[in-house]
Design a protein around this nucleic acid. Structure first.
Lengths: 358, 358
DNA sequence: ATGAAAGCGCTAACAC
DNA sequence: GTGTTAGCGCTTTCAT
């Protein structure tokens, strides 16, 4: 397996051995050099387009390499050059449900990041980690595999993220900006999103507004704050039972909604923290024979493609996914270049469709 | 930038220089060795859990490394060991529309692959390439960055894929199995999918069935064949205008549908090659004042989450995305282990919802 | 049980 | 303009 050989002092490889050698040994620079009748340095220079090498030789070498499908071994090159153009993108999943990479929003943001990274000539290493072991996210950085790390969502582990940042891991987190945070976040304006959705419901005459989402997650907490602000502004005193603190998980959400009805909680509208959650609310409402939006209005969050096509089309808070990818990557590149982290909050927009009355 | 120094013969690094050295030089094995008072060999052995090293020393070294967040540099390790546990996943995009990574199906399969690779301890390098330059997909393999390549969809470039396989690139393509193909495919049974959808429409009394999708793509061609088979079985002679050869692109699809109406083509049902395409068909039908499914039945393909929630919920051909990831990865691992490519076709299932009459 | 040293495939400083 | 050589951070023989 290992080809290290003290026994053969200088000779590169005896021809016999070479032929025997698994006929598909990977090509390397020395091979090109031999075939072109020059030294490896010359090949290296030629392939990097150096001016130092004779134009004619350069062309010959480049052609030869191309014709043989030779590409510089990137691992070796990175090692020598002490750099690399790869970024880790980490999608946490809920340890209980393992649920998350299927949420359309998460998938969409991965797509958007793929584009933004490609545009800058970076590659993307995609991985999933348990949301409760978020520190595992820095492993590829510690191993020197990537130049920086992007995490989708901060979950319950503000502290772990702060530790990573303190260790100077170039890091951008999609999520909520929080006081005393050391790491860089890029995210939508969650407070405003929650506020706009709730105010829209109140304007539509609703007064008993359920909130569906787990405020332990920073993003959700801020949306909840916006929700409270809107209620207060309207002089509405929220009841304790209006908060349904469910994770981003459809089955659980549905169960809680059904229980809420069973418990006799009266409500005329729901602010949900994702479109998928909103659609579960629609189902639960309809299961009781009520109608959306005439009996109960429902708002979603994210504006996934599905929100426009669903029955009813969802009124929802649009998150600028496409632009998000660009900003996240931009923020990461700045840190890789040694600049201090600078968080960004992006405006969100309420998209009114048919799941709410106006 | 470059730290290679002839001037300093053997000394690892003078302490002064070391301190000056950008205070955040990455930790390496030599540092751990120095701090533990042993040689690098011992550290290497300790970290790999070798029996050769004193149990006590081993524990000490491992603890030390952990406490300093040291991780073995994977690039260097790979170079030395001549292996790597990364796989490239390539999502082609249509050169015209750049459209593809947003299709829910593609995103879903990426998620499923992420899971399957993680389960086997592999990492995933995700990239997008122009569908017309599919040979670029092997670049990370040629550069020694990955152990194999997975491509989502074969597009118009059967030939390029065959060339890659001939070069012995470990490769699995999600798509249709074709005659005389050298590379390995894993895919749904497209002919059967097209057949089942069409037969279902005919059973519901429809006789004038539009086909929406571009048969230049192998997967679509096979679905089209199934469609033709079903028509033939029912003694229906398809008309030329029933074939709407549009790419997987919503705007184009909508336009073609509108034109079809304008041209006076009469039809009572549509077999679409994705759920998104099907929903465009629904819109086009409704735009003329007709109803789905009473006037026109529509079937989708893929059974994306959206299909269950849309208005109307789509009758669609379910593709086993979750299992697909597992099979694809399994097929790739077999090739990496030197086994010959073995293609697989997975059964598909028609899911009947409300976009068709029964 | 531990250490010294060679070498994985590449780049660049240094000689010529 | 081209070749020689050291070394990027690691693993593993070989010697002790």
């Amino acid at each position: 397996m290992n080809r290290a050989k003290r026994a053969e002092p200088t000779a590169l490889q005896s021809p016999a051995r070479q032929a025997a050698d698994k006929d598909r040994r990977r090509l390397q620079m020395a091979d090109i050099a031999r075939l072109a009748g020059v030294s490896v340095s010359t090949v290296s220079r030629a392939l990097s387009g150096s001016e130092l090498v004779n134009a004619e030789t350069r062309v010959r070498v480049v052609e030869l390499a191309r014709s043989l499908n030779y590409t510089i071994n990137q691992g070796a090159q990175n090692l020598r050059l002490q750099k690399n153009r790869t970024v880790a993108v980490v999608v946490p999943y809920d340890s209980a449900s393992r649920q998350h990479i299927s949420d359309p929003f998460f998938l969409a943001i991965v797509g958007s990041l793929a584009d933004a990274l490609t545009d800058r000539g970076y590659e993307m290493l995609l991985s999933r980690v348990d949301a409760d072991k978020l520190d595992a996210a820095s492993a590829p950085y510690d191993a020197g595999r990537v130049a920086g790390v992007i995490i989708i969502g901060q979950w319950r582990h503000h502290d772990l993220l702060n530790e990573m940042a303190a260790r100077h891991v170039p890091l951008v987190v999609w999520g909520a900006e929080m006081p005393q945070q050391l790491y860089c976040t890029v995210g939508g304006d969650n407070r405003d999103g929650g506020y706009q959705a709730t105010r829209h419901l109140i304007k539509g005459g609703r007064r008993r507004v359920l909130f569906l989402g787990d405020p332990q997650l920073p993003e959700v907490r801020q949306r909840h704050q916006g929700y409270l602000d809107a209620l207060k502004e309207a002089g509405i005193q929220p009841e304790r039972q209006w908060l349904l603190d469910v994770p981003f998980e459809e089955a659980t959400a549905r169960r809680r909604l059904d229980e809420t009805y069973r418990d006799g909680v009266v409500f005329d509208s729901v602010v949900a923290c994702s479109d998928l959650l909103a659609l579960q609310a629609v189902r639960a409402v309809r299961a009781t024979g009520r109608c959306v939006p005439s009996d109960v209005s429902v708002t979603g969050y994210d504006d996934a493609p599905l929100a426009a096509w669903s029955d009813p089309p969802l009124t929802t808070v649009h998150q600028p996914v496409g632009e998000a990818g660009k900003l996240i990557v931009e923020a990461l590149m700045a840190q890789i270049d040694g600049q201090p982290p600078r968080s960004r909050t992006m405006p969100v927009k309420l998209v009114v469709r048919k799941s709410t009355v106006t």
